[in-house]
Write a protein that binds this DNA or RNA. Sequence first.
DNA 1: TGGGTTTGACTGAATGTTCAGTCTAGAAAG
DNA 2: CTTTCTAGACTGAACATTCAGTCAAACCCA
Lengths: 211, 211
Amino acid sequence: MREQAGDVGTADQRREQMLRAALQVIQDRGFPETRIADVAERAGTSPALVIYYFKTKDQLLTEAIRFSEDTWYAAGKRRVATIPTAAGQLEELVAMSCLPEADAEPPTSWVLWLDLWAQAVRHAEVASVRQKSDERWRETICSLVLAGQEAGEFGQVNVGDFVDSLCALLHGLAIQIALDDPSVDAGRAFELSMRFVSGQLGFGWTPRSRS
Amino acid sequence: MREQAGDVGTADQRREQMLRAALQVIQDRGFPETRIADVAERAGTSPALVIYYFKTKDQLLTEAIRFSEDTWYAAGKRRVATIPTAAGQLEELVAMSCLPEADAEPPTSWVLWLDLWAQAVRHAEVASVRQKSDERWRETICSLVLAGQEAGEFGQVNVGDFVDSLCALLHGLAIQIALDDPSVDAGRAFELSMRFVSGQLGFGWTPRSRS
DNA sequence: TGGGTTTGACTGAATGTTCAGTCTAGAAAG
DNA sequence: CTTTCTAGACTGAACATTCAGTCAAACCCA
């Protein structure tokens, strides 16, 4: 096997390159309208090669979504790890699901979620990706809140109820953001979420500048 | 034109019949996978006839969604009108967006919303349907809350913030319900929503039996 | 070392299917 | 007889997938 330093032609890298390309296409054409040819073009290869790596279009798209979710979750974990207080961590998570990131690699945007949800209805594989992703996310928040409660940062609310409500709220706001709704932009969504969080958990919070 | 009493062949009725058929197909195939032939079959006619009534597939689907939203909104208005207190009215609206209806004609289900959102991203016409529908809904709740506040039923929260949060929450919960998420079923969604509402507006509320 | 053989990455040109939309003509109503 | 409505057959384009093979690196064995 080629193990040299700057080698960009490895199979794994090719795969990932295609997954990224797929995500971009999904983002601007939508999941069901995404053509293999588009992905190939974006990745600078031929349709046949895409099929060579992923047996079917379906597999390609499903893996792309999974890839996106995993990356997003990993980024969340990483960012939270750098923050000391539970309140700060929670704020960071809320920020992640409200405020757009400049870096964005791959660009896990809200639009993708809309497709994810719509596909999950009929597509079992996608449904399971979503389900797992959601669960993972909820558990992250859950344990974070519990830690905050033990540390005395947060009041004693029912954690299960709080987490489910917060997640629903964030998803609902994500829809507005994704669709550019004039009444709720990203900043507003962030503020509403944080007001909910601080109100429920009983800690003080005031709007600051965006990071 | 035929104006006789029991006539089911009128153009308008034909249209509506097709719209209903379209909604059913969208529901179980998804918006982008809905074929003219499916709709025709469901409506018991030919594809050509469907095109005769709606010039294009796109127009058919868009109108179907609009039809669904309008019907749903009208039903909401009607139901709310029969209830005296603002708190009761609000509860009814929350129930409508959480609890499944047996009658359902046409079956405005959550699944449809997922498609609506996903389509709205790229499809301007659909986006405007969604936008208007959302706005209408928000205004309904808004004026309802204001009325409740004047009547002294509700406390003095910022109505704009409350409405946007509630709508987001309801949408987020709708996703879970639509996707049969094990952690949040319809009943739970209703309870979480009502707890939020009563908490924010400061009125007493305890779970009762579903209507 | 050098020949042959294997293997993985890759491609361009088919293939076959699926559909939206058209065309033509027949039925029904007035 | 004319207008409105309806259907069956058809067309043309779009697209996923297949196929038959090319090319080059890697491995093997004398």
